[in-house]
């Protein structure tokens, strides 16, 4: 069923305004689109991070759904417990509603400190959807690198200095990791392409097992971009194939969007202050390397998808 924005607009938002996330933050855009995608009741667990902190500063909460935060590394385990309680109580006839269970974690809480819990929950195959809102660094503590930080990016722990040009080493491919682990549905999406994200969320919550979606959620503060550019930057990530939109369903890889004209990676990097140093002459080679990596990954993805055509 195609996404109809007018119909969506008749639904009640389940994340209110009045939260304290920065102006132009990508995370609440992701959360709103995700919650609008789902018709049934949602119970959510949230890892420690910007989204958690800024939406629930006591005595205010922006969440209209049952919501829990307990710690940083354990959103996947917490949602496992909630889902287990649900399965048990349902089996005993003590609950009848159909409920969707969603965990939200940033890249720090997902790629890094929560990776083990995520892997465990996926392997146990709880009927859950884990959403990583990926802003490519520890933004809540002030822009420190995570394993989601891309090659060459400036962060406060990978500053661009005289001998080191920002982050050394590539971004961890978490989607492939979770997909290869055998999760029933794994996808990559972006806040810029809301129809794609909403369709993926709908598909994920209809699955009978553990699902994972990695959503690109730009951070103006950490990416050194204008607050108004959040959606545009996310779109450039998609159009340059830095952030391809794809899904892996029961091990079958599928690309959901092929840019009409794949833009050079510099189009994505240039508007972001965190990559400004890459445009200095001494870093020309690194810039080339980044383009090569994007191209190679895109090519590999296409090959994987071709296997299942």
């Amino acid at each position: 069923m195609p996404v109809n924005i007018k119909e969506l607009s008749r639904k009640e938002d389940r994340l209110t305004g009045g939260h304290r996330l920065c102006a132009g933050c990508g995370a609440p855009i992701a959360v709103r689109q995700i919650l609008l995608a789902i018709d049934k009741p949602v119970v959510a667990a949230n890892a420690t991070g910007c989204l958690e902190v800024a939406t629930t500063i006591y005595p205010y909460t922006a969440w209209k759904i049952p919501w829990i935060h307990s710690a940083f590394e354990n959103a996947a385990s917490t949602i496992s417990g909630l889902e287990a309680a649900y399965q048990s109580l349902k089996r005993q006839g003590k609950i009848t509603e159909d409920i969707a269970f969603i965990a939200f974690g940033g890249d720090g809480g997902t790629y890094d400190i929560g990776f083990q819990a995520l892997s465990g929950a996926m392997e146990r195959n709880h009927k859950i959807l884990y959403i990583c809102y990926d802003n490519e660094a520890y933004m809540n503590t002030g822009i420190q690198r995570s394993s989601a930080t891309p090659l060459g990016a400036w962060t406060t722990t990978t500053p661009a200095g005289k001998v080191r040009p920002g982050k050394l080493g590539k971004k961890k491919d978490i989607v492939a990791s979770v997909a290869e682990q055998g999760a029933v549905y794994v996808a990559q999406a972006s806040i810029s392409n809301f129809r794609d994200l909403i369709e993926k969320v709908r598909k994920a919550v209809s699955m009978d097992g553990a699902t994972f979606i990695n959503v690109l959620s730009p951070c103006p503060r950490g990416w050194r971009t204008d607050t108004s550019e959040t959606v545009n930057i996310a779109r450039l990530a998609v159009e340059t194939c830095f952030w391809p939109l794809y899904e892996v369903e029961d091990g079958r890889w599928r690309i959901n969007y092929i840019p009409r004209q794949k833009l050079p990676i510099t189009e994505y990097l240039k508007p972001q202050g965190r990559f400004a140093h890459l445009f200095r002459p001494e870093n020309a080679q690194l810039l080339e390397e980044i383009q090569k990596e994007v191209d190679a990954k895109w090519e590999l993805l296409q090959k994987k998808a071709q296997l299942f055509q």
Binding site: I68, S77, I79, S80, G81, L82, A84, A117, R124
Partner: peptide, 22 residues
């Protein structure tokens, strides 16, 4: 419902989720 977790940290985290679920 027996959740065979991957660590004790997750054991108690899952218990917290389950207990908060009533």
């Amino acid at each position: 419902e027996f959740v065979t977790v991957e660590s004790e940290h997750s054991a108690l985290s899952a218990c917290i989720g389950a207990s908060a679920a009533g």
